[in-house]
């Protein structure tokens, strides 16, 4: 496995002098597979994230797209140190989170939050909405008693819910409303950075738009920075400033939004984009689809060289031997491919 040191982080840093809010270098997350009844020994690893480099600037939204099992959610969680990364550094405002101890990390969590995918599992069913949203305030000792209640009601109003709902339980709300509660919880500590992990994929079409709009409003209101993880390329295009495409634990392409959607360099990005159905029969009947063959290989035993070569129509001998370097091909446009374009 190679971790490219000259990834977008190094080059991005030289391009602009303002430091990035978040810099991820060589992030690797392997989950061990163990065997044995009493003495467990490691027999392999799920290589969920396998050397990922990127940065996020203050106030921007970076979209992270890929199919299930590509490691996009794991990347988000490893950044927030919900998993202890196997390797790599996560610089948040200059501090390497992977090197922080428990208490120091807990303090840092005030500045970074997460919005989860499942509006049913992400709220404690035995806590009232008031307690759920108020908990981060308590944890970080920001408000108590009446001040806390006032803040919770304000947050409910901000996310478009009735402020008098504080005494209700999550199960009394619809999926979209629950997602708003989760968003209110993440806003409570006034974070700078939010990882949105598929925040709308569990919602109905008409509700999705409500939540996307809310996230956009909140971003401009509170100057938030998002890492937006999703599998829906249309939604990612809509909300992101820059987009990173992941395949089997690696970022294969990263570029500004319109650049990526108009001029994808990596064959996987091209296939992914062409696979998305467009709600317009006039366009749809004329489109040329790239249909990939086969399934995504297992992250336990990823293909040699370029992970994508087993499904790639451009693959040549070199692709199965050498892992392509993740390098810049156009301004702010990185791709990891031997034959890009």
């Amino acid at each position: 496995m190679t971790v490219t040191a000259r990834g977008p982080v190094a080059q991005g840093s030289t391009a602009s002098h303002a430091p990035h809010l978040l810099e991820v270098t060589g992030l690797t997350m392997h989950f061990p597979i163990t065997q044995g009844l009493v003495f467990q020994r490691q027999v392999g690893a799920v290589r969920a994230v396998d050397g990922v480099d990127f940065f996020v600037d203050k106030g921007e939204t970076v979209g992270l797209v890929g199919e299930s099992g590509c490691g996009k959610s794991t990347t988000g969680r490893a950044i927030l140190q919900l998993y202890k990364p196997t390797k790599g550094a996560v610089l948040f405002d200059g501090t390497d989170l992977t090197k922080l101890g428990g208490e120091a990390m807990r303090k840092q969590r005030r500045r970074m939050q997460m919005i989860f995918q499942d509006p049913y599992a992400s709220l404690n069913p035995r806590m009232t909405v008031g307690n759920i949203i108020g908990e981060p305030l308590e944890v970080h000792e920001l408000a108590k008693g009446q001040a806390k209640l006032n803040r919770v009601q304000e947050l409910l109003r901000v996310v478009g819910l009735n402020p008098y709902f504080t005494n209700r339980y999550p199960h009394e709300f619809s999926g979209g409303q629950r997602q708003r509660i989760g968003i209110a919880r993440s806003l409570a500590v006034e974070p700078d950075f939010i990882v949105c992990d598929e925040p709308i994929s569990a919602l109905d079409v008409s509700i999705q738009a409500q939540v996307i709009n809310l996230l956009e409003e909140l971003q401009s209101k509170f100057n938030l920075t998002y890492l937006f993880i999703a599998h829906d390329l249309s939604v990612v295009r809509h909300i992101s400033d820059r987009v990173a495409v992941m395949y089997l634990g690696k970022i294969v392409e990263l570029a500004d939004r319109d650049e990526l959607y108009k001029r994808p360099l990596h064959p996987y990005s091209q296939a992914l984009l062409s696979a998305v159905p467009i709600p317009d029969p006039a366009v749809e009947t004329k489109r040329q689809r790239i249909i990939l063959t086969g399934d995504v290989p297992s992250p336990v035993n990823p293909p040699s060289g370029c992970h994508f070569h087993t499904r790639c129509w451009k693959a040549q001998a070199v692709c199965s031997e050498v892992d392509p370097e993740f390098k810049v091909h156009a301004p702010r446009h990185w791709a990891a491919c031997h034959f890009p374009g």
Partner: peptide
């Protein structure tokens, strides 16, 4: 409402979505 509330892949314009309330 359905058509207006979904972002389209081939839309570069970052128009605000108009959800069904």
């Amino acid at each position: 409402g359905l058509l207006r509330s979904i972002p389209r892949l081939d839309e570069s314009r970052r128009a605000k979505l108009r959800p069904i309330e």
